[in-house]
């Protein structure tokens, strides 16, 4: 196990390098020079400022040297300063935004697994019945409806017409003076819509995957044997089949994260949630290169960590495992 862990962590190194390399390449595809943006909003920026910035980003050097410099800055957790007029360190800007995005997505992830697995099992057990079809249509509708449209419709229905839930933001005004209980309840109320919609949209992939794995397991010989022996159907499904069907699902855990984080751009814009997705969108539109590069790297690293955790869970759950996937 320890061996596996070390091996798995060593594997992260090339992946991390690859992530930075791809981020760097993507940003340098863009026409124009980052420094022009940095000095653009300050019309009187002197030639000296410009030169200083060029030097800081090493823009006078060949690309591979620039990449090396950026990498060595990164290794010291120095993501540079934002090109936005506030000129703050990128890391500060990301740090204050990341907790809300992570917690939102983790809750959505938990709900996704909590709902998609039972739904998938149900569909597999009642395979090819009306229930199975209904479930598949339901989860696919969730996937197929453009999220911002559904979000607006729900905001209008629950926020304006029924006035049950707040429309946007994450806190009510003045909530800082409430007791802890009410503050938490307030936060929860604000998150009901974004999280439900995010979860609804992500059910399809996982539940269909669960369904097909379950069907596969249920057609295995040992299940047939168990049935022949007269073991009750419930026991077969929940004790024998489920255990084996769940295993491959764990690896999916890590991969669900990037999809959810990607969707946070839309959610955070429409629900005015001050998270990383919103920040990224602003950064991209304003060509705030250090910010965009910072978020890309951090976003990818989050997934990396998610995958690592998923693999570790898998290793713990399945003692046969000796090495990682691939």
């Amino acid at each position: 196990m320890a061996n596996y862990l070390i091996k798995r962590i060593l594997m992260l190194v090339p992946l991390l390098l690859g992530i930075t390399l791809i981020t760097f390449t993507v940003i340098h595809l863009a026409p124009g020079e980052p420094v022009e943006m940095a000095t653009a909003m300050s019309p009187k920026a002197s030639a000296a400022t410009r030169a200083r910035l060029r030097e800081f980003y090493g823009l006078d050097k060949p690309l591979h040297v620039q990449y090396g410099m950026w990498l060595s800055n990164l290794s010291r957790l120095d993501f540079g300063r934002s090109f936005a007029p506030d000129n703050r360190p990128v890391l500060d800007k990301i740090k204050e935004r990341i907790p809300i995005t992570i917690s939102l997505n983790v809750i959505a992830l938990i709900l996704e697994f909590g709902l998609a697995l039972p739904i998938g099992i149900m569909a597999a057990v009642h395979r090819d019945t009306l229930l199975d079809r209904a479930i598949s249509v339901f989860v696919f509708v969730g996937f197929a409806v453009p999220t911002f449209w559904l979000a607006l419709l729900c905001m209008y229905l629950f926020g304006v017409k029924l006035a049950w839930l707040p429309i946007s933001g994450i806190h009510s005004l003045g909530s800082d003076q409430w007791s802890f209980f009410w503050r938490t309840a307030d936060l929860a109320r604000h998150l009901v819509l974004p999280i439900s919609i995010a979860t609804f949209g992500s059910l399809a992939g996982l539940s269909r995957y669960m369904r097909s794995t379950m069907i596969e397991v249920l057609s295995q010989d040992y299940i047939t044997t168990a049935r022949a022996k007269g073991v009750r159907e419930r026991v077969i499904i929940y004790r024998h089949a489920l255990k084996n069907a769940l295993l491959p699902v764990i690896t999916l855990l890590g991969f669900s994260l990037p999809a959810l984080i990607g969707g946070s751009v839309i959610f955070e814009t429409i629900f005015s949630i001050p998270g990383m997705g919103q920040l990224f969108y602003q950064g991209v539109m304003a060509r705030d290169y250090p910010l965009v590069m910072g978020i890309l790297v951090i976003g990818a690293c989050l997934t990396l960590i998610g995958n690592l955790l998923a693999d570790l869970c898998y290793a713990v759950a399945d003692p046969r495992i000796r090495h990682g996937r691939g």
Binding site: I27, P258, F280
Partner: peptide, 26 residues
């Protein structure tokens, strides 16, 4: 190994972020 590591790396990125970054700049 090389190709599958490339796949792993690409899978780490929130795809929509990548798309957004490139399209907004072109």
């Amino acid at each position: 190994s090389v190709l599958m590591r490339l796949v792993d790396i690409m899978l780490c990125f929130p795809t929509f972020f990548l798309i957004l970054a490139v399209i907004a700049m072109l």
